[in-house]
Design a protein around this nucleic acid. Structure first.
Lengths: 332, 332
DNA sequence: CTGTTAGCGCTTTCAT
DNA sequence: ATGAAAGCGCTAACAG
C-alpha cells in the first residue's frame, strides 16, 4: 500500500505518489530519497486495479486469436507479449473458439473495460467482424490482414514472399512451377497467388490454370491439391503454407515422385515443422513475431493518443534453404 | 455506468447493484424488472476495474507458459481458457522468455495484484521456482508436473502412457523395444522411462541399458538418440515425444530402415505433427487440454475458498493407430 | 424492500 | 515543496 510507504517515509501519500510515479514533480531530493528507500524496503508495487480505476486506463491489452497451436499465431503472440511488456502493459489472451463470432467474445470483455485496446488476429474477414469492430469502445488493430477503414493493420507481404519463393525456383532452372494455394478468397491466399503470378510473368512465363490448386490450410487439402497438380507435371511447387507442403509431400511420396530429385518444393512460413518432415523443407521465413510487435506498438500509440502510422506490410525475412529444392536437370 | 441504470430505473445505485449482481436480494419483482430493463436498454456491463477494487478480486487469473508454440502448452492454454471463461474469469498469459526465471515475471504482476491466482506451467522445476512460488501473494497451481508441497498439481500420467505404448508394441509381437527418453532428470522424462520399464518387466522381459537413449525434446536429440540405439537392433521404439520421434524417423531413413517394415515407432503425445511426417505416427494421446481445464478449476476453487482436491494425475486418452507400427514378423 | 453511507488504493487538482 | 481533499465505479453494511 502506498499509505504504508508514505507513513514509513513520514510524508503524505500524495507526495509518495508523485515520487513513485515519476511525475515531473517538484520534490526535494531528501524527501524523494526517503520515499524511494521506503518503497524499496517495503517492496512496494502499485495496485494496478486502483491505478486503473483512478486513471481510467488498465494498462492491459487484449488479443483475440483464432488458434493457439498454429505457429503463425503463437509466434505473433510472442512478439506482442514482448512489446506489451516493454511498454508496461499486460497481455490478455482471448482464444476465439471455432464457433464463436470473432469479436462477440471480445465485446463482453470490451464492455467490462478490462483492456485499453484490442489486437485482433481474425481467421477470416467477414461482415460480422466488421460490425463487431465498429462497436468496440477502445482502439483496436488488426493483424495478419489489411482491412479497409481500420485504423491500423499489420500484415505480411504475401506477394513479396511468393515472389521470393518462385524466384528461387526459377533460379534453379524450373519452368513448370505449380502453386498450392491457400484460400483464394482470403487476403493471404490471394496475395500469395498474386506474387506467384507476378514472378512468373516477370520471367516471361505464362501462367497455366492447371498449375494452380486451392489447397487451403490443412494436410488433407495439401495432399489432395498436390494430386490434382500431378497430371500437369510440374517440376517444382510453391506451397502457400507449411502444412499444405507437408500434405503435398505425402502425395508425392505415394505417387513415387522423389523430392527434390523429381520435383522441388518450397513453402511459405518457416517453423519447426519444416525440419520435421522429410526432406526438410526450403521455406520463406516470415516476420510473424515482428508482426505481433509492430501491431502492439501501434496499438499502444493509439491508446496513448499518439496516432498510429499507416498499415505495416512486412517483408519476408528471407529464404531458408533446406533439402527440398534442387536445380532442374531434366529435359522438360 | 451503474448510476445511469439506476437513474433510468428510478432507483438507488445500491438497489440496482443488488439486482444486477444477483445478490440474494429481497427486491420487489417490479423494481427488479425495471432495473433489468434499464440495464438491457443501456447495454450495461459492470466496470471490471471498479468491481475489482471494491471486492479485492480481479476475476482474472494469470498463466505462465514457457513456450507458446509447443502443442502441449497451446492445448493446455485452450483448456484453461475455456474453464476460466466458464467461471467468468479472464485469462492473462505470461509468456516466460527463455532467459527469465519462471516466476520472476509473475512476481511483478503478482505484486501489482492484477490476478487472483496463478497457473504455472514451468519447463523445469528448480530451486528458484520454488522460492518464487513461496513469495506469491495469491493462490497458485502447478501444471505438467507434480511438486512436493504445492497446493495443487495437474500432471499427465506418464507411466501409464508409456505402458500403453509399450504394451501396444508387445501385442504386435515386438520383444526388442527401445526407448527414446526425454530428460531423465525431469519429472515427465522419468515417468515415461519408468512406465517403459514396468511394461517390459510385466511381460517378463529384461531391460537393456543399450536400448535406452536420452533424446531430450528436440529433433536433433531424437535423431542422435536413434543413431545410438541402432546397434542394439531394436524392432520397435517408444519415443517420449513427437518431436523426438520425428528426429528418429530421420535417422532411420538415413540408415535405410523402413518404418514400420523394419522397425515400429510409437510416440507419446498426439498432435498435428503426427500426421505431417511419413509414415504418420501411431501415438498415445494425452489429455493436455483437460489438464489446463482441471488446473484452472482447481485454482478457482482455491481462490474462492473452496479448498482444492488432491493432485490430478491424468490418464492417457488412448492409442491413436496410424501407420508407424506393425506386427513383428522377422526372426529376432 | 430500498436508500444512505462509507470506502477499496490511487492520483490530482487546489491550497498552503 | 508538501498536504488536504475529492473522486474514479462499484458493493456491502447499516438504517429505516
Amino acid at each position: 500500500m502506498l499509505a504504508d510507504v508514505a507513513r514509513e517515509a513520514g510524508v503524505d501519500p500524495s507526495t509518495a505518489s508523485r515520487v513513485l510515479r515519476g511525475t515531473v514533480a517538484r520534490v526535494s531530493p531528501e524527501t524523494r530519497k526517503r520515499i524511494e528507500e521506503a518503497a524499496q524496503r517495503l517492496a512496494y508495487h502499485a495496485n494496478a486495479t486502483a491505478r486503473a480505476l483512478r486513471l481510467a486506463r488498465t494498462e492491459a491489452i487484449g488479443m483475440v486469436v483464432p488458434q493457439l497451436d498454429n505457429p503463425v499465431f503463437s509466434t505473433t503472440i510472442g512478439g506482442a507479449q514482448r512489446a506489451a511488456e516493454e511498454a508496461g502493459y499486460a497481455l490478455l489472451i482471448v482464444h476465439q473458439e471455432p464457433g464463436a463470432s470473432t469479436a462477440d467474445l471480445a465485446r463482453r470483455l470490451d464492455a467490462s473495460r478490462r483492456v485499453d485496446g484490442w489486437l485482433i488476429a481474425a481467421a477470416d474477414e467477414d461482415a460480422a467482424l466488421r460490425d463487431a469492430l465498429a462497436t468496440l469502445a477502445v482502439p483496436y488493430v488488426v493483424l495478419n490482414r489489411q482491412m479497409q477503414g481500420v485504423p491500423f493493420c499489420a500484415a505480411l507481404d504475401n506477394a513479396a514472399a511468393a515472389r521470393m519463393a518462385v524466384e528461387h525456383l526459377l533460379s534453379l532452372g524450373h519452368r513448370r512451377i505449380g502453386h498450392l494455394a491457400g484460400r483464394l478468397q482470403g487476403y493471404n491466399g490471394m496475395g500469395r497467388l498474386l506474387g506467384y503470378q507476378q514472378a512468373l510473368q516477370a520471367a516471361g512465363l505464362a501462367t497455366h490454370p492447371e498449375l494452380v490448386a486451392e489447397a487451403g490450410y490443412t494436410v488433407g487439402g495439401g495432399a489432395e491439391g498436390m494430386r490434382r497438380l500431378l497430371p500437369a507435371r510440374p517440376t517444382a511447387i510453391f506451397a502457400a503454407t507449411l502444412v499444405a507442403a507437408a500434405g503435398a509431400l505425402r502425395s508425392l511420396h505415394e505417387a513415387g515422385w522423389g523430392v527434390p530429385h523429381d520435383i522441388s518444393l518450397i513453402a511459405m512460413h518457416d517453423g519447426p515443422v519444416a525440419e520435421l518432415v522429410h526432406p526438410p523443407l526450403t521455406t520463406v521465413r516470415m516476420p510473424t513475431s515482428r508482426m505481433g510487435q509492430v501491431a502492439t506498438e501501434a496499438l499502444i500509440a493509439l491508446i496513448e493518443g499518439r496516432g498510429a502510422e499507416r498499415p505495416a506490410i512486412l517483408a519476408p525475412e528471407g529464404l531458408i534453404l533446406r533439402a527440398s529444392t534442387a536445380p532442374w536437370t531434366g529435359n522438360d
